[in-house]
Design a protein around this nucleic acid. Structure first.
Lengths: 391, 391
DNA sequence: AATAGTTTGTAAATTCATTAAACAAACTTA
DNA sequence: TAAGTTTGTTTAATGAATTTACAAACTATT
């Protein structure tokens, strides 16, 4: 249901706006906030003082005068609390402790061989516990845990289906909340990655973007008007299973000719294995290409072509301004980019393409983990804040 | 920018909520609205009385008592104003005059041979003028015009590109606003159709749906959480140009193997023309199939297969609860449905499919025109109302 | 019929966040 | 030194919702 309005709501809305400006445009003065937002100076003063009271904002001294009294500059106090972000991978766990601004305080990387759900979740909890224990003293302490997982989640934070982990129906959120007594957010790794790119990566200034995570499978996180877009039931972006050849080979999802059969890491390794006559891993392929191995380079270029086919579908279906390619395969940027861009040039509609950018991630393998941490921070602020869109 | 909060906003929010309940749950009493919304009886009373003052709501007499004083029942006054809805087709114009509830008061259908933009827009304006002139006397009069067009529009209401009409960069909204001095909304016919189905058709009780319009091309309107989803720059759903065969035949959009090359009315007619050795139209194919012509039936079934291929892509990419198939080809439902459903059963992921429904439109060719009219009504109300989502 | 209890809707007093206006403090510029 | 600017606070006014009280209209029970 829609929420009714009262004075309390008004205050929440305005407090959120004021905090937002302090978070994004800091250092900033009370007067400048009033000017930008249209709120009166009195209102801003009152709200800012409450935010200082609750330790989320601090005064850092006077700034430059512009012809009158010097302004008192305000800063968001990122160290008022800390968040945990985790990227649960198929063979490794990457976990970080960040402050409320998303700055990484500590990072931990652990390999696992995915023996069992119990084994991996035990690794997960000990890793998280360790990071929590090293968190500096702060007003709010560790405010929550965000998790990016290689699979489909529902709204209650159950990991419904993670084919590459071989997991099904794991109530991860409930387990972790019980373990740590903290708010936990769980989402698909591509969704988390998209948020990570939006907040900290190449997508900072773009309201509409698609993050394509190219790993063993292909997933996508979609951000529309600065917000993560989720499908009807909370999990969309199973974009790797959009068919690019209706009578192609059978995919484990049931459909035929799915994109990820052609353009994923798995597809590359399979293809390379056939051509070379023995199994290879991504690292060795990358170094071979680096050394000028023409056959391997051709494999990458072929992959670039197939990546392009799917990217054209994303452009025509979702019409984003910016497509960011991430995941492990992003290491092959050098050989993937050219055939991909050539294909786009040839095959996408002129209207949507006009303002389109396609780039590889600059956060490398940290998009997901940073996005996950920012989920936790967002949940923390959502509990006390609200917003209204202009109609 | 986000809007700041003040008392005015609070009132708008609550007034919108109260009006919403009167529009959807009528007849309803003041006391019941207070109960549902959580607003106090005093607040509801005050807002309802203002709505009565502005002629949007009326009292229709007392209702049944539930053990105490009889309630005064309230009704939304649909006849306080009227709206125009238009479906601008490739060969015809369908226009309606509706009241504020969307009830059709008058309908007009006109053929055109698409001689020129000037000719068609002249037809359009005379048609609209005629409907406006027949609108009954009312408090607000005709409050606006909504238009569904077979092409891509921008936010300023320019028709950027309508390949099947052969139009490009027509400032339709500005032209019509100048002509009639009324607010005009223009959008893609598939978007309008989706809204029409959501408001008046099979999608009334579904928050997330995709409307697929199968005509000369294929378009889609996507509704997420009860709201029309538009891509980044205001036009998405060019879903007909998602490739289902990466090395297929060339499409006029530049890409290869686009869905609409396989599953549109155009594709059907082309195929039929080849097989029969002469040109045919949809009507004759439908009647042949009706008479049991096995060859033609097979054509429809093949089309059903290709429809299914694209629908699987929509399911995996957008994950809706409900897919509604509309447009002229919907007439072939009888032969299209079976192969389509068989394909879905075989090829879509088990998780998304669980709660999925696929149906043909029950509004026939009126989805778009009704959606267009409701755009006009929505714009009228948006000028005085606002809403907040619970965080 | 009389009484008790319920439901509907209005009225009066209170609360509280914002605005508007006035002002003090701190600074720059001429 | 005086005049003008900018910053941020104080005070009074505004107005929408809430709380509390209450009158009117009805049902059910004795």
């Amino acid at each position: 249901m829609k929420q009714t309005g009262d004075l309390n709501l008004v205050k929440k809305i305005n407090k959120t706006i004021v905090l937002h400006h302090i978070r994004t445009d800091s250092p900033i003065s009370r007067a400048r906030i009033a000017e930008i937002t249209g709120l009166t100076k009195a209102t801003v003063s009152s709200l800012v003082n409450e935010l200082i009271e609750s330790s989320l904002v601090e005064e850092i001294g006077v700034g430059e005068s512009s012809g009158g009294r010097k302004p008192m500059m305000l800063l968001f106090k990122g160290t008022a609390g800390y968040a945990i972000g985790v990227d649960l991978g198929v063979h490794d766990i990457l976990a970080v402790l960040t402050d409320l601004t998303g700055k990484v305080i500590r990072e931990k990387r652990i390999q696992h061989h995915n023996e069992s759900v119990e084994h991996v979740t035990r690794l997960l909890t000990t890793t998280i516990r360790e990071l929590i224990d090293t968190a500096p003293e702060s007003v709010y302490g560790v405010i929550g845990i965000g998790l990016g997982v290689p699979g489909i989640c529902d709204e209650e934070g159950n990991l419904l289906f993670a084919p590459n982990l071989g997991w099904e129906n794991v109530p991860l959120q409930a387990q972790l909340e019980a373990e740590f007594g903290l708010p936990v957010v769980i989402d698909n790794e591509a969704n988390a990655g998209a948020v990570g790119e939006k907040q900290f990566g190449a997508g900072k200034d773009t309201a509409n973007l698609v993050y394509v995570s190219i790993g063993m499978g292909i997933g996508a996180g979609i951000i529309i008007r600065n917000e993560l877009y989720r499908g009807a039931t909370g999990f969309s972006g199973e974009i790797g299973h959009i068919s690019i050849q209706h009578d192609g080979p059978k995919c484990r999802c049931g459909s035929l000719g799915c994109w990820e059969l052609y353009a994923s890491e798995h597809a590359l390794l399979e293809q390379a294995g056939q051509e070379l006559g023995h199994e290879v891993d991504l690292e060795s392929l990358l170094s071979k290409a680096e050394n000028g191995d023409a056959g391997v380079i051709q494999l990458f270029e072929r992959l670039g072509y197939y990546l392009g086919v799917g990217v054209v579908n994303i452009i025509n279906g979702f019409n984003p301004e910016f497509i960011i390619l991430g995941g492990r395969l992003a290491g092959g940027e050098k050989w993937l980019m050219k055939p991909l861009l050539e294909l786009l040039e040839k095959r996408s509609l002129p209207h949507p393409r006009k303002q389109l950018k396609v780039e590889f991630s600059e956060l490398q393998d940290r998009s997901t983990v940073l996005g996950a941490a920012s989920f936790a921070v967002a949940k923390f602020f959502a509990s006390t804040t609200v917003s209204v869109e202009r109609s």
